[in-house]
Simulated scan of single mutants.
Amino acid sequence: MTDDGSAPECFEDYGFVYGDMHVPYRVERKAIASDKLRKITIRVTPDSRVVVSAPEGAQKTAIHEAVMKRAKWIHDSRQSFNEQQTYVQPRRYVSGEMQFYLGRRHVLKVEENPELTEQVKMTRGKLLVSLPKFQDDKPDRVRELVKDWYRIRAQQVFTTRLEHLLPQTRWVKEIPAFRILSMEKQWGSCSARGTLMLNPHLVKAPRDCIDYVILHELCHIEEHNHGERFYRLLGQVMPEWRGVKQQLDGMAELLLNE
């Protein structure tokens, strides 16, 4: 998603012990206006890094206390991400693999059917790929067909959700232009001109996760950074966004896997 545009002034690396495990964390300090209060926030990234954002003048003891209060949550989040990475393997695009659509699992089935042209369709819990004849490059062809199918579905779903969500964002007068763009680490972004870029892999996530990303980017049309006003807007249109974001972050490694 869109960066806030203000780079941290410095990094500080610390750590703490939880059980028999040493957990490193990085503190990013940011300068803020004297009349604005900024809380210490903590996030665990999908690659298990712990990042703490803090005001420039925050005391080290206060930062460490904030981290220790959430030590169990940090440990559990890192463990969850590590477990996901252990089981996530590159897809081979063969029958029996799992594919996802709107948060639900579907079994990939590849069949040879001389009576049909190449096609992909969803039927009874399966994502069925039909090929008129199997060739040596079958997995590569299946991969391309599945990617195209996701892009088409993404265009349809994102258009529908944008139309549904637009009344909640009073500062956006009409449905913004958007592009489907594959990204390795981002679900979406917003250009300075208000054009949205949405990752086709997002259509694999539950609908409330899709709504969160779209609303996040619509908020960037009004506020191009991640300042206090941006999060106030996001909280107005989706009060539960933190929980939804955490859910989506937890699925990222699995859904972005190709």
Rank of each mutant, 00 (worst) to 15 (best):
M1D: 06
M1A: 13
M1T: 11
T2Y: 03
D3G: 11
D3W: 08
G5Q: 05
A7F: 11
P8E: 09
P8Y: 08
C10W: 04
F11I: 01
D13K: 03
Y14P: 00
G15K: 06
Y18F: 15
D20F: 11
V23T: 03
P24L: 10
R26H: 06
R26K: 13
V27I: 13
A33I: 04
K39E: 11
T41L: 09
I42N: 07
R43L: 12
V44E: 13
S53M: 10
E56T: 03
E56P: 01
G57S: 09
K60P: 02
T61L: 05
I63P: 06
I63L: 04
E65Q: 05
R70H: 11
R70D: 06
K72Y: 00
I74D: 04
I74P: 02
S77M: 11
N82E: 14
E83A: 13
Q84T: 04
Q89V: 12
V94T: 15
S95V: 02
G96L: 04
E97H: 08
Q99I: 02
Q99P: 02
Y101D: 05
Y101C: 07
L108Y: 04
L108S: 04
V110R: 09
E111K: 09
E111W: 14
P114I: 09
P114K: 07
P114N: 08
E115L: 07
L116K: 13
L116T: 15
T117G: 13
K121R: 15
V129D: 05
V129I: 14
S130V: 13
S130R: 13
L131T: 08
F134D: 15
F134C: 06
Q135E: 15
D140P: 04
D140K: 02
R141H: 07
R141A: 08
V142E: 12
V142S: 06
R143A: 12
W149N: 07
Y150S: 01
R151G: 10
Q155A: 15
F158Y: 06
F158E: 05
R161P: 03
E163R: 13
H164R: 14
R170Y: 11
W171D: 07
I175S: 11
S182V: 09
G188I: 04
G188A: 07
G188N: 04
S189Y: 06
C190M: 11
R193H: 00
G194Y: 01
L196C: 06
M197L: 15
L198W: 01
L198P: 01
P200D: 09
K204D: 02
L218S: 09
C219I: 05
H220A: 08
H224K: 04
H224G: 05
G227Y: 00
R229M: 10
F230L: 05
R232C: 00
L234T: 09
G235I: 11
Q236S: 10
M238R: 02
E240G: 00
R242V: 05
Q246T: 13
L248M: 01
M251I: 00
A252W: 03
A252Q: 04
E253I: 10
L254Y: 00
L255E: 02
